[in-house]
């Protein structure tokens, strides 16, 4: 359950953000989650509800913003959507690809009252 550790980290980051910005209650968290990460959305939501107990974000809604996996072909320079690490380039069929997005696990913003 790495989702639990991720949410514990999230709690620290939210605490810090609250201190820096003088927030008392966080009502919503906008989180970028790349499609290529090994993070399970339902597990993350569950972990969020557990880990935020008695924190500034205990009532907060978790808004998960999925980020599409994208790869760049090192052979022909084509960039293309990829649901896996192992999608060969659709243009030249090369496996020499580089992931350019889809690995995000980033708190983009929070809403506070």
């Amino acid at each position: 359950m790495h989702e639990i550790s991720l949410c514990q980290n999230m709690r620290h980051i939210l605490d810090e953000a609250a201190q820096e910005n003088d927030l008392t209650v966080i009502s919503k968290v906008h989180l970028l989650v790349g499609d290529l990460t090994c993070v399970e959305t339902s597990a993350l939501e569950f972990a969020f509800s557990v880990c935020m107990k008695e924190s500034i974000a205990q009532e907060a809604e978790l808004h998960i913003i999925p980020v599409e996996g994208k790869a760049l072909c090192n052979q022909c320079g084509n960039s293309f959507a990829s649901k896996h690490f192992f999608t060969p380039c659709p243009r030249c069929e090369s496996n020499e690809i580089q992931i350019i997005s889809g690995e995000e696990l980033t708190i983009q913003s929070v809403e506070a009252h």
């Binding site: 980290n9 910005n21 809403e111 009252h113």
Partner: peptide, 20 residues
Amino acid sequence: THNHDDHHLIQVEKDLLEKN
């Protein structure tokens, strides 16, 4: 940071794995 009636939106832009 900016206000929409009753809420602030605060940009955080922090990686969950940053500490690690």
